[in-house]
């Protein structure tokens, strides 16, 4: 009984991707247009395009820059968000400016960053990723910290928690569901910024590999890069969900018990 229901759910989950792939395969099979190579050709190009050398030259640097930029955004976003969230005057002072800055589409900051540190090299790309990821993390952290229950805060005050205990055990953990929401949004922005930052300079990285393939009319190879990006994005969000599932088990339980009563 349970097993069949799990089986049915699995079927539901993979049904659409399988159908789409099959459709792509069939529709593109006899295609003669060089811009729309058949899925068969694209898949055949995969092993030759993504050799272990290319993985080291393009994929690893891309992911390393994403990790660094994302980590930087988390650190700054949560730190700054906590300071802003805890202080009403600081919030009133900064919030309009933050709302404006958030409204600027992150990719347009890349040319600005390039004015100072150039397009090529790691620095500009990491800064671009970090700046793109910063806003959702920062603003969600502010919301989370501001929304802390005042009874929880009064409890902490009456038991005279020390500052670090208060900040970690009460403020950070209490706002963690909102921080996670921001971090999830930031992750997809991070992947976008990773690719875009590489398109400009096109020296190395996944985005650069796609552009170079397109310029060289290596169309099936270009498509392999796009598919690879999709797979990486999917895997990253899967890893994120698993981490969130573990870290916020208490939050799910709390929500369930609140709905139950």
């Amino acid at each position: 009984m349970r097993l069949t229901s799990i089986g049915r759910q699995l079927l539901m989950t993979i049904a659409l991707p399988v159908i789409l792939l099959a459709l792509w395969w069939v529709v593109s099979a006899d295609n003669t247009s060089p811009f729309w190579p058949s899925l068969q050709k694209i898949l055949q190009a995969f092993p030759d395009t993504w050799t272990s050398d290319r993985v080291m030259e393009d994929i690893v640097p891309s992911l390393a820059r994403l990790a660094l930029g994302y980590a930087l955004a988390l650190l700054v976003g949560v730190g700054l968000g906590t300071v802003i969230g805890l202080s009403r005057p600081v919030r009133a002072f900064l919030e309009p400016a933050l709302e404006f800055l958030r409204a600027i589409p992150p990719p347009v900051i890349i040319p600005v960053i390039a004015l100072f540190v150039g397009y090529s090299g790691w620095t500009s790309k990491i800064i671009a990723i970090a700046l793109g990821c910063l806003w959702p993390i920062l603003l969600n952290t502010v919301e989370g910290v501001r929304g802390l229950d005042e009874v929880l805060v009064d409890t902490a005050r009456s038991y005279r928690f020390r500052r670090p205990t208060y900040l970690y055990q009460v403020v950070l953990r209490g706002s963690s569901p909102q921080v996670a929401t921001g971090a999830r949004q930031a992750l997809s922005i991070g992947v976008i910024m990773m690719v875009i930052s590489e398109l400009f300079a096109a020296d190395n990285g996944l985005g650069a590999a796609i552009v170079q393939a397109q310029r060289a009319f290596a169309i099936p190879e270009m498509w392999t890069g796009i598919i690879l990006l999709g797979v990486i994005g999917f895997l990253l969000s899967l890893i994120f969900r698993l981490a969130e599932w573990r870290a916020l088990a208490w939050y799910r339980g709390l929500r369930r018990s609140e709905r139950g009563t």
């Binding site: 009874v151 929880l152 409890t155 953990r173 209490g174 963690s176 208490w250 939050y251 709390l254």
Partner: peptide, 11 residues
């Protein structure tokens, strides 16, 4: 406190 649900740390 009266609000026990809000004075215990759910995490």
């Amino acid at each position: 406190f009266q609000e026990y649900g809000r004075s215990l740390y759910p995490w």
